[in-house]
Design a protein around this nucleic acid. Structure first.
Lengths: 183, 183
DNA sequence: CGGGACATGTAACGCGTTACATGATTCT
DNA sequence: AGAATCATGTAACGCGTTACATGTCCCG
């Protein structure tokens, strides 16, 4: 079976949910997968085209409604099979995330101490916002979709985001303390 | 002042340490920055060329030694200034790391439960290896470089890796428990 | 009737990886 | 002599972002 890139599998997976259009996929990712995935329209539309070309989905060019340029996609059996095959494959390697603040901190001896602490404070504030956003999504999921089988898995991924973000926040706290204390 | 990409700043920063050649830079990153940065030769050599073209470093084409194709780079005052300016700039945004296992888990309702747990177990094992590697680097740093001003900052970045990795390992544990218990 | 959300799409560009190509030095 | 490591470099390719272009629908 042919291999596709992760973006393709992500879209294939989202087509199993209520997302039926490129726009809906973008929204879903921005709202519910944003802690571990992101995507741009510049990828979505060409990839949807590829998916149709490969026979993994069909597109109904909104034949019934007034032609408001709204496309609805539906997975074919082949598309479902490709998705399932990928899901069953073992994971490759864990990625190295490039982190700008750690890169700057690595060269911290060339910074003023004030700059270092400012950057850490700002990073911490951003992480706290992120954490709050995750909590918000979590509550939304628990209220709106409490029934579905999917929800359970979506909450698992959120928990990952919360735990790692919390650990990063704690790191900011102790690092700031260490820097200020040493003086 | 002109802007460069993060790869360029990373190399500029490493040129302030003992790393003087492309090969040494690659080794340093693989050994000591691998928890938050990586780079390939395909980037290093063209970037070093750019850095010289821009007057941020000079290259001594190993004039003295037998011409064994070994280049030594040295930052110019301008290069130091560019680096410092970048270090003082506030950080942009925190990146979204794409995570294959979370993507698969998000679609976990389409997997067999066994596949899900296998993937989580494997991910956990890889995280544990990573954690052990960090501990190893930490010990090496504390033994070999205990004196330098840089070491303190390098240990901060390692601590970040350890804390977030540990949080991810704990997440694996509780998620595996939740999945096995629910049945 | 104007603004915001909905909706689709493309082209240019930047970045990074991979594979390839080459050759010197060092160790056994 | 052969292998491993040191060392530099390029070309092709894949992926993703950004900016641009276009148009509809719905609410007030």
């Amino acid at each position: 079976m042919k291999n596709y890139n992760h973006t393709t599998y992500a879209i294939l997976g989202l087509l199993t949910t209520d997302c039926r259009s490129g726009y809906a996929i973008k929204q879903m990712i921005d709202r519910s997968l944003n802690h571990f995935w992101k995507i741009s329209y510049g990828q979505i539309y060409p990839t949807l085209k590829l998916i149709v070309d490969e026979g993994l989905a069909t597109v109904s060019a909104s034949s019934e409604d007034s032609k408001q340029g709204k496309n609805e996609y539906e997975l074919t059996p082949k598309g479902k099979e490709v998705l399932k095959t990928w899901l069953e494959e073992p994971i490759e390697q864990i990625p190295v995330e490039r982190n700008e603040i750690l890169l700057k901190l690595f060269f911290g001896s060339h910074q003023s101490k004030e700059t270092t602490t400012d950057q850490l404070e700002e990073y911490k504030a951003k992480l706290e916002n992120r954490y709050a956003a995750y909590t918000g999504i979590e509550e939304m999921l628990q209220n709106n979709y409490g029934e579905g089988e999917d929800t359970k898995y979506w909450l698992f991924t959120l928990d990952y985001g919360k735990r790692t973000t919390k650990a990063a926040i704690e790191w900011c706290t102790v690092t700031l303390e260490a820097i200020s204390k040493e003086e």
